Simulated assay, not measured.
Amino acid sequence: MPMTSAPHLLNEDKPEFGRLLDEALRTAHERPELSAVGERLNTEQLRTMALNAGALLTAAASAEYEHYVKVRAESRDGTAAVPFLETDGEAHGAGAGATAVVAVLAPVLAGTAMLIFLLVGYLLKLLDPPPAFADTMLTAGWFFGALTAAAILCAAIGLLLTAVRNSATEVPADREETVSEEIQRAREAWRHALLERGIMPFLQDALADPSADPSSTVPRRPPGRLPRPGYESPGFTSPGSHSGSQRPGFTSPAFTSPDFGGPAERSSEEEGPATDRD
């Protein structure tokens, strides 16, 4: 069952609550305070109740969670800053890649030309008589030799400058280890607080409360280590009334139907009193 009742947790941290709850229920037999698991409430019922009250439980470790999130965010920001610096340097030095290619190829090309000219020049010197351009070939070969040496020197200087620039932007290994250890400590502090101040007290109170209803979306909780969720409706009374006073009684008015009679009945009634008077 996914945990969706802790809105203040980041999505990446919500599964951690479920894993910690499952671990607590799985090792309940090792804790004397949870020895009543399975007698009235089983582990699945307790898990459902805890997930429904997830916002209440995670709020018990809110301070540790805020510190953990802050340390993790600072670490991510610091790591993201290094690629940004490298990209910015590449944007300002668009020709850095071309320069590196030239620095590598120049010594190779110059050295190859040197070998060709010197080889041809010395082979021409072996002829009898040697051609006039043999000395020109040798001169060109030695020129390319000097050019090869200069290219090698420039390439070495370029590699040295590149190494110095990269060392200024890389994150030291010691700092990475320190940041990783700090995040790990903050995470363990949050997990410990969530378990000891949130999950365990909730499970203990749920087992001790005989009126706990596992099917309720917000389980009933006795006053204790965790606040009871929910609100009680205030009592409202009409103005001027008191709780101890009796409700006013009302009686419906008595209505009697008028007597209606025929003409004969009215005549007899009129004669009756006349007879008495006589």
Score class of each variant (00 low, 15 high):
247 R>I: 13
116 I>E: 02
28 A>I: 07
106 A>Q: 12
15 P>E: 03
165 R>Q: 15
88 D>F: 08
61 A>P: 04
126 L>S: 09
27 T>I: 04
98 A>D: 13
160 L>E: 01
30 E>L: 15
67 H>L: 06
202 F>V: 03
56 L>K: 06
185 R>P: 00
5 S>T: 09
247 R>F: 04
188 E>L: 14
176 E>W: 01
146 A>P: 00
146 A>S: 15
201 P>I: 10
105 L>S: 12
127 L>V: 11
142 W>D: 08
98 A>H: 13
253 P>F: 05
1 M>H: 12
189 A>V: 03
267 S>H: 06
173 A>G: 03
183 I>Q: 10
90 E>K: 15
201 P>D: 08
85 L>W: 03
196 E>W: 01
10 L>W: 07
200 M>Y: 03
103 A>G: 02
233 S>D: 11
217 T>P: 05
160 L>W: 03
38 G>F: 02
98 A>R: 11
94 A>Y: 08
114 M>W: 03
257 S>I: 08
99 T>D: 13
190 W>M: 06
211 S>E: 15
153 L>Q: 03
258 P>M: 12
197 R>G: 06
79 T>P: 00
128 D>P: 04
231 Y>M: 12
215 S>N: 15
176 E>M: 10
88 D>C: 03
54 G>T: 08
111 G>E: 02
111 G>A: 10
138 L>M: 12
142 W>P: 00
265 E>D: 11
74 E>Y: 02
89 G>T: 12
124 L>R: 02
199 I>H: 00
173 A>K: 15
19 R>A: 12
1 M>I: 13
196 E>R: 14
198 G>M: 09
37 V>I: 10
81 A>G: 04
143 F>Y: 01
122 Y>V: 14
94 A>M: 11
122 Y>R: 09
43 T>F: 01
60 A>L: 07
82 V>A: 05
5 S>P: 00
24 A>F: 01
113 A>G: 12
107 P>K: 10
237 T>P: 00
23 E>F: 07
229 P>D: 13
227 P>V: 08
98 A>Y: 04
138 L>A: 05
224 G>K: 04
223 P>E: 04
119 L>S: 08
238 S>F: 14
20 L>A: 06
28 A>R: 10
20 L>D: 04
165 R>H: 09
94 A>I: 15
278 D>Y: 08
136 T>E: 10
168 A>R: 13
230 G>A: 08
138 L>P: 00
182 E>D: 07
225 R>K: 13
188 E>K: 10
145 G>F: 06
37 V>Q: 09
216 S>W: 06
52 N>A: 07
19 R>E: 08
71 V>Q: 02
10 L>D: 09
228 R>M: 12
43 T>M: 01
32 P>C: 04
46 L>I: 11
173 A>S: 11
174 D>V: 11
236 F>L: 14
229 P>W: 05
212 A>Y: 01
59 A>N: 12
188 E>N: 05
220 R>G: 07
156 A>W: 08
50 A>S: 13
78 G>T: 02
187 R>C: 00
174 D>Y: 05
